[in-house]
Simulated scan of single mutants.
Amino acid sequence: MGSLSSLSLCWIRAWIGFFYLIRKAGDIYLLLVEPPGTLRKYGEKGSWAIINGVEDVLGAEYTLTLASHGFNTLLLSHTQSKLETLTQDFNSRCSGVQTKVLVTDPSNT
């Protein structure tokens, strides 16, 4: 009888986790497709956004979306060359915003 109740508890936890992931995926989707002006609840034009993990496709698109909405960006990464390449790309696509880079390596602490 005890294994049946623990199995039910596992299923409940699995469903809660599933709905949490769906909600977060929806939040990311809405952030990427929201029309300009709707991100103002996160800050005014010219505010700074700190983005970590910009080397992958999702991080780069997230950064580009924020920059296209007028947010200045601070990019964190482990690789200086990747950051410089992405900064040039963002500056060519979105004029009027500042992009700064910071190379971080937690193994050197």
Rank of each mutant, 00 (worst) to 15 (best):
E34R: 14
T79S: 11
T104E: 07
A14Q: 09
I50Y: 02
L21K: 14
S81N: 09
W11H: 15
F71T: 04
I50S: 02
L74C: 07
L21F: 14
E84V: 05
S81A: 13
L30N: 11
I28A: 11
G70W: 05
T99L: 05
Y62P: 01
Y29I: 15
L66F: 03
V103E: 03
R23G: 04
W11F: 15
A49Y: 01
N72K: 01
G43Q: 04
V33N: 06
K24R: 13
D56M: 09
L58F: 14
G46T: 02
V103G: 00
C10T: 10
R93N: 07
Y42L: 05
S47C: 07
T65P: 01
T85F: 10
G26V: 12
V33W: 03
A67T: 01
C10A: 14
N72V: 00
H78S: 10
A60P: 00
T79I: 12
L66E: 03
F90R: 00
L32K: 06
T38D: 09
V54S: 13
S92W: 03
Y29P: 08
L30F: 10
D56C: 12
L64K: 06
H78V: 04
G2V: 13
L76I: 14
R40E: 11
S77K: 05
V97W: 02
K24G: 00
W15P: 01
S47P: 02
D105K: 07
S6G: 01
A25D: 10
I51V: 15
F90Y: 02
Y20A: 12
I50R: 00
E84Q: 11
